[in-house]
Design a protein around this nucleic acid. Structure first.
Lengths: 163, 163
DNA sequence: CACATTCGTCTACACTTGTCATCGTGGTTA
DNA sequence: TAACCACGATGACAAGTGTAGACGAATGTG
């Protein structure tokens, strides 16, 4: 699973939304958000292709002024890529802090009524078998099993010192 | 807020866990996870310092064989850095898909009983004012408010072909 | 059948990241 | 005090990323 750079995300998002886009249209759409030259977008497109995230198809309908207009489409669903990248990102974080990170997200990410209901359902299920605490997995000899306190501010001198 | 590379995360995690570490000890701890040379760790340390994530202090106690043993410590709390980086990561994702991404995380991330209770409390609160749906914010003219409907492939077709 | 247009590819360059060797300096030890 | 050693700094180099110009091939137009 190749990593996706921020610039590549911008392009990929558009492809997912449009489902099928020509380079021409893609460049136009991107330019409403970034002051990138057409070449830049093409480069990103090429890189996304070598990474396997997009592929091209011939457009049967050769729209007037677009000779050999190829059409780009994503090879994977938006959700699956997002899930994979998100999990990958979380893998950098100590297990003990993933829960709190999630709490932060749940407080800040835009959620719909349905999202909330889904989350509640999952939490209810997970509550049945959740451990009382998640130990640190930093593999540096630390035996911390913290976060039992109200806001992990117990032994966390560090937490208080945040700039 | 500078980005933190995967290699830098490894080092930073150890510093947070240890609170105060000498280069010597840090290198020893890192080597239990990665086959990096001492130089590599020092470089990462230096980069983390220029990025402002760690700083050095003199160790008053000059432990026998460690002359001028500096001690590294994090300048920011682990939680605040994690939250900032996590939010930054989510900013690449279309608003409409952030909820689902969160659902995926809540299903896979290790959670303690307390984490779950906290999450439930927050969700309950948020449910009071959550919108019925979160619209796409890909800024590419899409008016999708999906995740309720199954096929939003209505006007997409026309949009694609008009070049 | 030339021509302009447009497309994808190639090349480029600065900067970041992964990875490491070397060096100067200043305390430790004999 | 002389030899030594660890520490941080500097330099290095390949690969990835942000950004873009130039080029050759395909194609509709006159």
């Amino acid at each position: 699973m190749d990593s996706i750079s921020p610039a590549e995300w911008s392009v990929l998002r558009i492809i997912w939304t449009e489902k099928h886009v020509t380079a021409r249209r893609l460049i136009a759409l991107v330019s409403s958000q970034h002051a990138w030259s057409a070449s830049t977008v093409k480069t990103l497109l090429a890189r996304l292709r070598t990474k396997g995230y997009v592929r091209t198809l011939r457009s049967d309908a050769t729209t007037s002024q677009s000779p050999r207009a190829w059409v780009y489409e994503a090879t994977m669903s938006e959700s699956s890529v997002i899930n994979a990248q998100t999990s990958d990102f979380f893998s950098h974080i100590c297990a003990m802090h993933q829960g709190p990170a999630l709490i932060h997200l749940v407080q800040t990410v835009p959620l719909s009524q349905k999202n909330i209901r889904d989350l509640q359902k999952i939490l209810e299920k997970r509550a049945a078998s959740a451990p009382s605490s998640v130990p640190c997995d930093c593999e540096c000899g630390c035996a911390q099993t913290a976060e039992t306190g109200t806001n992990e501010a117990t032994q966390t001198d560090e937490v208080t010192s945040h700039a």
